[in-house]
């Protein structure tokens, strides 16, 4: 399960993810992180059964946590199944089915945004931003 964790760094540079790993024993996989002087955003992957534990722990340390589900939107009317997105995705979200129709496994997505940027037919967007 993927969680989007955002936190402020104004109260100091607390190693909150490391802290949560130590306190809970859950192995957290950081898939994407963007941290600057005032705030940070990390996309983490954890086993489904540890979701509640990790989420509560992170929130207890002042971070905002959002559970990511299918965040990517594919506009079937615009998509022509060209597959430009297939090889550029670091998570292998896209593939073809037996009939060369584009298949999207949104659950694997880490929202890097590459496919949205390059889709020749502008068929991909983040949910809520379509």
């Amino acid at each position: 399960m993927k969680l989007l964790v955002t936190f402020s760094r104004k109260e100091g540079k607390k190693p909150i993810i490391a802290q949560v790993v130590r306190d809970t024993g859950v192995l957290i996989n950081v898939e994407r992180a963007l941290i600057d002087s005032s705030e940070g955003e990390a996309l983490i992957d954890i086993p489904d059964e540890s979701c509640r534990l990790v989420k509560e722990k992170l929130e207890g340390m002042g971070a905002a946590v959002r559970i990511l589900e299918e965040e990517l939107n594919l506009d079937e009317a615009e998509c022509v199944d060209c597959g430009a997105c297939v090889s550029i995705c670091p998570q292998e979200v896209f593939s073809f089915d037996g009939n060369w129709k584009l298949r999207m496994e949104g659950k694997k997505c880490v929202l890097c945004g590459r496919c949205i940027e390059i889709c020749p037919h502008r068929a991909l967007s983040r949910k809520g931003e379509a």
């Binding site: 022509v80 199944d81 060209c82 597959g83 430009a84 297939v86 550029i88 073809f96």
Partner: peptide, 23 residues
Amino acid sequence: SGVVELRGEEVRTSPLSSFRRAR
């Protein structure tokens, strides 16, 4: 096939044209 060996590594491929629509 979706994967080609290039310089000793497996590299993923993307068609830019739609084989589905060509059909």
